[in-house]
Simulated assay, not measured.
Amino acid sequence: MDRNIVRSSREDPRRNSTDIFKAVNSPIEPALSRRTIRKRLNAHGLFGRRPVKKPFISKKNQKASVAWAKAHLNRGRKEWAKHVWNDESKFNLFRSDGTKWVRRPIGTRYSPKYQVATVKHGGGNCMVWGCFSETAMGPLRRVNGIMDRYQYEDILERTMRPWALRNIGRAFVFQQDNDPKHTSLHVRSWFQHRRVDVLDWPSQSPDLNLIEHLWEELEKQLAGVRASNADEKFAQLEAAWKAIRLSVVHSLLDSMPRRCQAVIDAKGFATKY
């Protein structure tokens, strides 16, 4: 019966004790309780846990990610030195600090002393675009409204390219994800006209995009720091962005072989990165 309980759980980790209760109980054997089933699962190291949320990845993109990871597995920091990594991200002005607990007497649930304030839709947001390379943190630029292909081209022309030429030279390689505005005909024409090499990139592969870690760094640095408006938020983000040390960037570049191997081992599914 122990083996049946464990097998039922491992066949489908989403089964709860009630589902397993129905699957393993038999009219010819003594009935087990749901509590007993949970105890037996716990004894075998199978505990109920909140699952990690990761984006859905199609089978086609899983194969593409594995192929890309195998092709770039042996690239070290030197091979990535001439690459410019870029992306855009949105930051709320009023950020939740996660689940908070309070100790309160019975009957005081709605007392202001024991409440946590929230703001609808985060109280507004500030969207930014940023880039970096092995040698330097690039500029952080504020995105006005919704980023479209025309504003993206303006960022490439006025911000990214001049910075890349100064810091890397004409032989730089540009990394971007496959967002529709990034791969539009309008933007592709700009790359061709400016003779900018673009790194072939697999779709649905945030685990491989190093800049995602830097956005998390900004979130951590500004946790609990409030901004009264988008201008103040951008100033905070820009200061935190400039304060990121190159040692952090070098560690990220050094992690690329491990990231590639993790994607290969996961067969294209999401990894810890």
Rank of each mutant, 00 (worst) to 15 (best):
R188A: 03
G130A: 07
N209R: 00
P139R: 03
Q175V: 10
L218K: 06
V196Y: 01
G123C: 02
Y152D: 03
Q204G: 01
T118C: 12
R170M: 08
R195L: 07
R161M: 14
I211S: 06
L156N: 05
S189Q: 08
I146R: 15
N209M: 04
H213L: 09
D200A: 12
T183L: 02
A223N: 14
D148T: 05
V116F: 12
F172I: 06
R194D: 05
M137N: 01
V143A: 10
L208K: 04
M147Q: 13
G145C: 11
A227R: 06
F172L: 14
I211T: 03
A223R: 12
V119W: 01
H193K: 11
N144E: 15
I211Y: 04
V119M: 00
W163A: 06
S205W: 15
E212N: 10
E153F: 02
G138E: 13
R161G: 03
R194T: 01
E219K: 14
E153K: 13
S184P: 01
M147C: 09
Y150D: 09
A117F: 12
I155E: 00
C131S: 15
R195K: 14
G138P: 10
W163M: 03
H182S: 04
W190I: 04
P206Y: 09
N125P: 07
P162I: 07
G124L: 08
G145Y: 12
D177G: 00
E212Y: 07
P206A: 07
W190P: 06
M127E: 11
Q176K: 06
D148V: 02
T135P: 02
G169H: 00
T183A: 02
S203R: 08
I155Y: 00
G122K: 00
H186N: 09
E153D: 10
I146V: 10
W201N: 00
T159R: 02
V173P: 01
F132T: 06
R161K: 15
N178T: 13
H213V: 11
W163E: 06
